[in-house]
Amino acid sequence: MESFGSFRRKFAPWNDPAAKPYITFEKVTKIFGDFTAVDDLSLDVFNREFFALLGASGCGKTTLMRMLAGFEEPTSGRILLDGQDLRGIPPYRRPVNMMFQSYALFPHMTVEGNIAFGLKQDGMAKSEIDARVGEMLKLVKLEKFAKRKPHQLSGGQRQRVALARAVAKRPKVLLLDEPLGALDKKLREETQFELMDLQVKLGLTFMVVTHDQEEAMTMADRIAVMDHGRIMQVATPAEVYEAPASKFVADFIGNVNILDGTVEKVANGEAEITAAAQGLTIRAETGKALAPGQKVWFAVRPEKIRINREKPQDASFNAVEGELWDIAYFGDMTVFHVRLDNGTLIKAASLNAVRKTENPLTYDERVWVSFDTDAGLVLTA
Rank of each mutant, 00 (worst) to 15 (best):
G279H: 05
D251P: 04
A182E: 14
V369W: 02
S3K: 08
A19E: 09
S6P: 08
V256P: 03
Q199M: 02
P17A: 09
R165W: 07
D184T: 12
M226Y: 11
K147S: 11
N308L: 13
M109I: 04
P292C: 03
K149S: 09
A375D: 10
A131W: 07
F145K: 08
G254Y: 08
L280H: 01
D82Y: 05
E239S: 02
E358N: 15
L183W: 02
T110P: 11
A243I: 09
K27L: 10
D34L: 08
P95S: 04
R306V: 12
A182Q: 11
T29M: 06
R283P: 07
T205D: 06
F330I: 00
V28Y: 01
Q157L: 10
I79M: 01
G55W: 10
R283A: 02
T262V: 14
C59S: 13
R170V: 14
D227C: 12
A224M: 00
T29V: 01
T36W: 14
E178S: 02
A243T: 10
Y103G: 01
V249C: 08
P244R: 01
A168H: 03
I89A: 10
L105T: 01
D130A: 13
V133M: 07
R78M: 08
E190S: 10
V354P: 15
I346N: 04
V111S: 07
T344V: 05
W297Y: 15
L175W: 00
A381V: 13
S127E: 15
P13K: 05
E239F: 04
